[in-house]
Amino acid sequence: PCPVAPSSRSSQEVWESFSQCFTPAVKEVVEFAKSIPGFQTLSQHDQVMLLKSGTFQVLMVRFCSLFDPKERTVTFLNGQTYSLASLRALGMGSLLDAMFDFSEKLASLGLEQDEMALFMAVVLVSADRSGIVEVGAVEQLQENLIKALRSLITSRRPDDSTLFPKLLLRLPDLRTLNNQHSEKLLAFRID
């Protein structure tokens, strides 16, 4: 739910309410990660590092369902729909454009909910390894999750051998989104 403002509020206030949106969304990714089979067998340090480098990318996948690439609108969980143009005032134009493109490609694959969830688990454990101590353990977990994703997708679409590779090709897209946009500024009012 994102209380993005009616037009009467200043873009600063709009920006603050938009920034507030991220906090619950990030917490949900942390809970999601803990539910991934094997994630909590990693060291606490490596769990934190993977979350720090992968959460933005998981959020990008989760937010895709809010984006309507055809209408160029975003509908928040509170039902409020905004056009791309109105959201540009928040100064996130380039991120929003990239999000529309990414969500169009992902939506075209037509994944089921459980396939999307497993894909998000793969996204998280495929995140940047620079801070990881036990790389082998993370790579083993990634391999297991990719195997599970492949068998789930191929079992449902035995005659479509292109979907799985197309899905894995979204991983570099997400990494680019992350490198280009995770340094965007948020603003929090401190009274």
Binding site: S19, V26, T55, H181, S182, K184, L185
Partner: peptide, 25 residues
């Protein structure tokens, strides 16, 4: 006067994750 704390998305995400793991220690 209202003051503002500005941080990057990445830092905001890191902050929430660190807080969560510290709380559940």
């Amino acid at each position: 006067p209202k003051t503002h704390r500005v941080m990057t998305l990445a830092d905001h995400i890191s902050h929430i994750i660190t807080q969560d793991f510290a709380r559940n220690q």
